[in-house]
Simulated scan of single mutants.
Amino acid sequence: MKSITLVRHGKSSWEFSVSDALRPLKNRGVKDAKLVADQYNRFSELPKMIYSSPAVRAFSTCKIFLEAFNLTEDSVSVKDDLYDFGGESVVNFIKKLPNDYDSVMLFGHNHAFTSIANIFGDKFIDNLPTSGLVKLNFEIYDWYDLKKGTTEFIIIPKDLKK
């Protein structure tokens, strides 16, 4: 069995005149990512491998999770394939994952992550919001055989603020 945890980057700031890849997180993005990371940490095992998009907002979100997991930046691999908004590059990346990793966590972007969650999970998500997380499980032994699986859980920051 394999599992993928998709984490959309936290809310980013448009306050600075920088390229898309260099946009930083807003304070709300930092707070929401901490809430989600803490919630995930309470009831799920750490993934065997963590990958992040190189975009500042995605890698910054990843670092918040690493802190919650008591891991260092050496625990994450930054991959250009995850700086994808449509999802095709992310799916191709997943299909090429080493099979000795049964569980992975990916930090990236929408619309890619909402699309992947809907194509491969069994619960429809209208939109995975910023700092949103979805965990998908698959009855496969080889990542290349990626097919429809089940949605184990979804964590939305708004739901944690009630």
Rank of each mutant, 00 (worst) to 15 (best):
F93Y: 15
Q39I: 07
K63I: 01
R57P: 04
V104A: 00
S44F: 00
P24S: 06
N41M: 03
E15C: 06
T5G: 06
A117R: 02
Y83I: 14
R23K: 14
P129A: 04
V56P: 05
K158S: 10
N99D: 07
K79D: 02
K63N: 03
R8P: 13
L146C: 05
L133W: 05
Y83V: 09
F113A: 05
V30Y: 04
K95E: 07
N127R: 11
S60I: 09
R42A: 06
L35E: 08
R42G: 04
F85A: 13
M49R: 11
T150L: 00
F85D: 07
S44R: 03
A33H: 13
G86D: 14
W14M: 02
S77I: 14
L146P: 04
L136N: 12
K158D: 08
K158H: 08
V18R: 10
F65R: 08
D102V: 02
L97Y: 05
S52V: 02
L66R: 00
I156N: 07
E152K: 06
P54V: 11
K123L: 08
E139W: 01
G149R: 03
S52L: 06
L46G: 00
V134K: 01
V104M: 00
A117Y: 05
D74N: 15
V76Y: 10
N99R: 01
L106A: 08
D122K: 02
S75E: 11
T114R: 11
D38C: 02
K161P: 07
Y40D: 01
S77K: 15
D80E: 14
A33W: 08
F43T: 14
I64F: 01
K96Q: 05
S75R: 15
I154V: 15
T151C: 11
K11C: 00
F124W: 04
F65M: 03
F153D: 09
S13A: 13
I140E: 05
L136F: 13
L22I: 03
L25Y: 05
L46A: 04
D100M: 06
S89T: 13
L22E: 14
E88D: 06
N27W: 03
D126P: 01
H109A: 11
Q39N: 12
T151S: 10
F59V: 09
D81H: 08
G86W: 05
K2P: 10
E139C: 10
F59K: 12
H111T: 08
F113C: 00
A21F: 07
K34F: 07
K26T: 15
D84A: 08
E139Q: 12
L22C: 14
S60W: 11
V134I: 13
R8H: 15
S3M: 02
P24I: 06
L82A: 01
I4S: 00
Y141M: 07
N70W: 02
S3Y: 03
A37N: 09
